[in-house]
Amino acid sequence: MLKKTVEIATPGTRLSVKSRQLVIERSGLPAASLPIEDIGVVIVDDTRAIYTHAVFISLLEAGATVMVSGTDYLPAGMMLPIDAHHVQTERHRAQVDASEPTRKRAWQAIIKSKIRNQAEVLKAFAGEDAGLAAMANRVRSGDPDNLEAQAAQRYWPRLFGKSFRRDRGADGLNGLLNYGYAVIRAATARAIVAAGLIPSLGVFHRNRSNPFCLADDLMEAYRPHVDWRVRKSLDEGVEESRGLAERQTRQAMLSLFNETIMVAGRRWPLLLGIQTSATSLAAVLTGEKAKLALPEGLPLALSVGNEAEEEEG
């Protein structure tokens, strides 16, 4: 079932639970409600929001992720369920026991997908891929040649101009990218937990202070979709100088979940595509399958009907 992404941004919103419904109360507006089981990710951008404890318990029990933003509108933290798969212990053990060659091949596949998708982004906006498609074909197990970094050196100046520098702490254009990556990371972390995997045990990323190493691994293949959405939004008139303080800007980033992408030769709403990739990663790490299901190319078009939905709060 495709879950909804819910953004809470109206100042002073109060969240509570009644009869398995998330109740959203806003000053001067009638109360709104959503079935808890339909929610996949809740993003709270309102620093004055009020919650009952039952909100967190109910959402986590239903397998949802709760992400809260700071005063800069960038995510400050997230909550994930810890019991989300019926064979979780078995998969945890298999994940820990996965061989180094298996991990390296998984990273190879992720980086190949990332660079190929970066090539598609450049072709869409710059008219040529700067040799990235050919570079993707040269990625070896574990990416020992660090072609990921070499691709980035060609990619960023062609996508956003020679003066652009990627900065995780900057605002403006970097802030848009950071927000997009953060919401993709939250969705990826949720999908990994739902697949019965340990989110802190990565195939490449290793950082004792990072509880989401595996999410950071898998989301690399989806980063170019955020880049595509940011560049497309700028071309459509979103002003980078106004940044994330504008609700319209954040909604433009969240609209990425509404896009249809190809994963393993099939069309999926992006949110389900991430879940498909996480499930296939579990199968690879446990030895059930040899090949990862990863995104192929740019979003095809806006989905109609059965797409990931954004709810305003």
Rank of each mutant, 00 (worst) to 15 (best):
A109D: 08
P295T: 06
R223S: 11
G313N: 09
S241F: 05
E307T: 15
A170H: 02
E236D: 15
D143K: 01
G127F: 12
I110N: 10
T279Q: 09
S19C: 09
G169L: 05
V17M: 07
R266Y: 12
T52M: 01
G297A: 11
I111T: 14
E120N: 09
F257G: 04
V183Y: 11
L234I: 14
R165N: 10
A282I: 08
L2A: 14
L197N: 02
E100R: 12
L272A: 09
E61F: 00
N210P: 13
R166Y: 12
V55I: 06
N137T: 07
P199D: 04
L298M: 14
F56P: 00
I43F: 14
R206C: 00
A293M: 02
L173D: 01
D83W: 07
L60W: 09
T276I: 04
P199L: 02
S277Q: 01
V139G: 07
V230L: 06
M219C: 10
R166A: 03
A109P: 02
Q95Y: 11
G169A: 01
T47S: 13
T89M: 12
G127E: 12
K162M: 13
V87P: 00
A126Q: 06
E148D: 11
E288V: 14
R116I: 00
P199F: 04
R231V: 10
A195C: 09
I39E: 02
K4H: 15
A187Q: 13
L147D: 09
Q150W: 10
L2C: 06
R26T: 14
Y222Q: 04
F257I: 03
F204A: 06
R93P: 00
R223Q: 09
G243S: 01
D46T: 05
R250A: 01
A215T: 00
L201W: 04
I274R: 01
R165Y: 11
A152L: 11
N178H: 08
T279C: 07
L177A: 07
M262K: 12
L15H: 05
S255Q: 13
I24N: 00
A9T: 15
P157S: 09
L292I: 10
D38E: 15
Q108H: 03
E220H: 10
F204L: 11
T249M: 01
Y181D: 02
S99H: 07
G172A: 02
A293D: 05
R103L: 01
R48F: 09
P35L: 02
V41D: 08
A134L: 08
P224A: 03
A191D: 04
A187F: 01
K291E: 14
Q275L: 03
S200F: 02
K18D: 10
M79I: 11
G287I: 12
L214V: 10
E259Q: 08
V139S: 03
I50C: 13
A194L: 13
L234H: 05
H205C: 05
V44M: 03
T52S: 14
K123Y: 00
